[in-house]
């Protein structure tokens, strides 16, 4: 992906693997992407595509061992996070870069009340007194629109509903006004009406604070709503990156195209869905050449032997398909009707 010198976060050729009993599982294989200040990048992929592991490597919460970063750079405002000491990294995390997890119930501490958990950010990073931190916590809860914040600040996570807990996670993430937020499936566990509330809140805060956002998700609907650009991952690699409008109009990779065609749509009724055949590969045995070739309708001999580079398809667009031109042409034909 294009890596301008001003990028807020610039991931370059990142490789992450896990040592398992059956061998080395290559979870991330040469991923590069960048986010500018105030921009929303959606990282789209199915389970096992490496989208969350990439995020864990960025925030430094990867379990090592068994995981290890074998290669690559993660530049945050020009400085490589991977070369920082533990202490330096801890200063970046929370204050300049924060993460929102999918499952708020297990991400929050069940034996601390939410006021203490929110306030802790200010005590640790800003050296505030507990009393001031408490006041800040109430302010934050108001900001993420938790009703009766003053009364609820002493309650524990289990006393909040799923949507409210996710708001507390968001409050914690924005507490120190970071420049980058990484949200890993922030609404997957929520019902649609609550998902709409939470996504709206997140988008609003991101605009207000001018933060960069990396949204990791498998939901093509959520992505279409909020993303500026998209990186699609498959088997630990980026297979396509593009600005959001282009990718939905004319995907340049057969996997992206398959995904778009396999989702049932609310505004359409039909019997037969397009289904991508086969299964995603095991990360212990990623197929040679293009990892998608066993499932690809366009696959030819070259796909079985040569790993496709990220071809430049257009401005800001890249596709890791030898036959991206064919893919583009086909979709334009079918959507022309």
């Amino acid at each position: 992906m294009t890596s301008s010198p001003t990028a807020l976060l610039d991931v370059r050729d990142l490789h992450v693997a896990f040592r398992t009993r059956e061998g080395v599982a290559k979870a991330v294989n040469g991923v590069s992407y960048s986010v500018n200040a105030g921009e929303t990048l959606a990282v789209l992929g199915e389970s096992g595509s490496g989208k969350s592991v990439t995020a864990q490597a960025i925030t430094g919460i990867l379990d090592t061992p068994p995981g290890f970063i074998s290669k690559g750079e993660i530049l945050f405002k020009g400085t490589d996070l991977l070369r920082m000491s533990g202490g330096e990294r801890r200063k970046v995390r929370g204050a300049q870069m924060a993460m929102i997890f999918q499952d708020a119930l297990s991400a929050l501490n069940p034996v601390l009340n939410v006021g203490d958990q929110l306030g802790e950010m200010f005590v640790v990073h800003r050296g505030m007194s507990h009393k001031d931190a408490r006041a800040k916590a109430v302010e934050l809860m108001d900001r993420v629109r938790i009703p009766a914040a003053r009364e609820r600040v002493g309650q524990y996570p289990h006393q909040f509903s799923g949507g409210m807990r996710q708001r507390i996670m968001i409050a914690m993430a924005i507490a120190l006004e970071p420049e980058l937020i990484i949200a890993d499936e922030p609404t997957t566990a929520l019902d649609v009406t609550v998902q709409a509330q939470v996504m709206e809140l997140l988008a609003e805060l991101r605009r207000e604070l001018g933060m960069g956002l990396i949204l990791i998700t498998h939901d093509l609907g959520v992505v279409a709503d909020v993303a500026d650009k998209i990186a699609v991952m498959y088997a630990g690699r980026i297979v396509e990156t593009a600005p959001v409008h282009e990718i939905y109009r004319s995907p340049a990779h057969p996997y992206t195209k398959g995904l778009l065609e396999s989702i049932p749509r609310l505004d359409q009724k039909g019997r037969q869905l397009y289904a991508i055949k086969g299964l995603p590969p095991s990360l212990l045995r990623i197929p040679p050449g293009c990892a998608f070739h066993p499932r690809c309708p366009l696959a030819r001999q070259v796909c079985r032997t040569d790993e496709p580079p990220l071809y430049e398809v257009g401005p800001g667009r890249r596709s890791a398909c030898h036959f991206w031109k064919e893919c583009l042409v086909e979709r334009t034909d079918s959507s022309g009707a």
Binding site: T193, L220, G221, V222, A224, H245, Y248, L260
Partner: peptide
């Protein structure tokens, strides 16, 4: 509330946001 998997016209889309739980 269901997100539509198509970014075209997303700025104009009207959405009913329910309050509370």
């Amino acid at each position: 509330a269901v997100p539509v998997p198509d970014p075209a016209g997303r700025e104009q889309r009207k959405r009913i946001i329910l309050h509370g739980d």
